[in-house]
Simulated scan of single mutants.
Amino acid sequence: MDLEDIYVNVKNDDMKDITGPRTQNHSQDEGKDGKCRGRRCLVLMTVCLGLICVLLLVFITLQHITITDLKETNEKLKKDYGQVFFSMSNEEMSWNDSRQYCRDRGADLVIINTEEKQKFISSFIKHRVWIGLSDENKVNLTWVDNSPLKQGFWETGEPNSSDENCIELDPGRDPVNNWNDLPCSWKIKCICEK
């Protein structure tokens, strides 16, 4: 054997030893990094899924509470007044046109004869509305069913004018005492009751 042959063999052996472990170590490091990234990703996904579940549970609970409150209110109204439906007009009309609007829908302007009903209606309307009370005959205030007014929920100083014969409910005022008399020709929204 020549010295050159030995040198070449030694050189090749060194290369095998050096390149072999480096390649293996590099691959092993990549595997560890991939596993570590995979674990982090799995933990992150699990946390996100848990948060989504909690938010969904809160949403369902709030919906259930709202539905339960509405059912209780509806049952109380049925008990006190029978089957009652309220609807509001989208357009502003005179008192007479408002009454006709309600009648065209099988209803009439709302009659408010208890404080509880007054508070309830005041709680959900956002605009001034005609109610079913007027003194069109210039004698006494009467409801649309011709029953006389027994209890009123007047704003302070109302009713105040002989030219104002129709009654509105103004939710921007006191939640109980918020009735105001207006000329029947004024145009505001209305609330119907069936």
Rank of each mutant, 00 (worst) to 15 (best):
residue 103 R to K: 13
residue 77 L to E: 00
residue 114 T to K: 14
residue 160 N to I: 03
residue 65 I to S: 07
residue 87 S to W: 01
residue 153 F to I: 00
residue 59 F to D: 09
residue 62 L to C: 06
residue 2 D to H: 07
residue 72 E to K: 09
residue 40 R to T: 13
residue 65 I to H: 06
residue 102 C to A: 02
residue 128 R to N: 08
residue 1 M to R: 01
residue 155 E to L: 10
residue 194 K to D: 02
residue 156 T to D: 10
residue 51 L to A: 01
residue 64 H to R: 04
residue 97 D to H: 15
residue 146 N to E: 07
residue 152 G to R: 10
residue 64 H to W: 11
residue 101 Y to G: 00
residue 62 L to E: 04
residue 155 E to A: 03
residue 7 Y to F: 07
residue 172 G to M: 05
residue 94 S to V: 02
residue 179 W to E: 08
residue 81 Y to F: 07
residue 9 N to K: 12
residue 183 P to L: 03
residue 79 K to A: 04
residue 85 F to K: 14
residue 122 S to W: 14
residue 145 D to F: 09
residue 93 M to N: 13
residue 27 S to P: 01
residue 177 N to E: 05
residue 94 S to K: 08
residue 66 T to Y: 10
residue 35 K to W: 12
residue 27 S to V: 04
residue 123 S to N: 13
residue 70 L to Q: 05
residue 44 L to G: 13
residue 167 I to N: 02
residue 136 E to P: 02
residue 101 Y to W: 09
residue 49 L to C: 15
residue 51 L to Y: 09
residue 126 K to T: 15
residue 145 D to T: 01
residue 24 Q to D: 02
residue 77 L to I: 03
residue 156 T to E: 13
residue 139 V to A: 07
residue 13 D to S: 01
residue 169 L to E: 13
residue 176 V to A: 01
residue 102 C to F: 08
residue 160 N to K: 12
residue 130 W to M: 00
residue 105 R to A: 00
residue 102 C to K: 10
residue 115 E to C: 09
residue 121 I to V: 08
residue 140 N to G: 02
residue 153 F to N: 03
residue 56 L to S: 15
residue 119 K to F: 05
residue 101 Y to P: 02
residue 132 G to I: 01
residue 96 N to S: 14
residue 144 V to M: 00
residue 128 R to C: 02
residue 102 C to G: 01
residue 141 L to H: 11
residue 65 I to F: 15
residue 194 K to S: 05
residue 148 P to E: 09
residue 165 N to W: 07
residue 9 N to M: 15
residue 6 I to Q: 09
residue 166 C to I: 00
residue 139 V to P: 00
residue 69 D to W: 03
residue 92 E to W: 14
residue 182 L to T: 00
residue 98 S to V: 01
residue 14 D to G: 10
residue 160 N to G: 15
residue 63 Q to A: 14
residue 159 P to L: 08
residue 132 G to R: 08
residue 147 S to R: 06
residue 40 R to D: 04
residue 99 R to V: 00
residue 147 S to P: 02
residue 183 P to H: 11
residue 5 D to K: 15
residue 186 W to V: 07
residue 37 R to N: 15
residue 134 S to R: 05
residue 43 V to I: 05
residue 46 T to Y: 10
residue 93 M to A: 11
residue 16 K to W: 04
residue 43 V to N: 09
residue 15 M to T: 11
residue 182 L to R: 07
residue 149 L to H: 11
residue 87 S to A: 12
residue 78 K to S: 12
residue 56 L to C: 09
residue 187 K to R: 12
residue 79 K to F: 10
residue 88 M to V: 09
residue 61 T to D: 13
residue 158 E to A: 10
residue 72 E to L: 14
residue 94 S to P: 02
residue 87 S to N: 05
residue 181 D to P: 03
residue 164 E to L: 07
residue 4 E to V: 14
residue 55 L to E: 14
residue 147 S to I: 03
residue 97 D to W: 03
residue 100 Q to R: 12
residue 172 G to P: 02
residue 25 N to Q: 09
residue 72 E to H: 06
residue 190 C to M: 11
residue 141 L to P: 05
residue 136 E to H: 13
residue 50 G to A: 14
residue 109 L to K: 08
residue 115 E to L: 09
residue 53 C to R: 10
residue 190 C to I: 04
residue 67 I to G: 00
residue 171 P to T: 13
residue 51 L to R: 04
residue 188 I to N: 12
residue 93 M to G: 02
residue 93 M to H: 14
residue 30 E to H: 12
residue 135 D to Q: 11
residue 35 K to V: 03
residue 161 S to A: 04
residue 166 C to A: 15
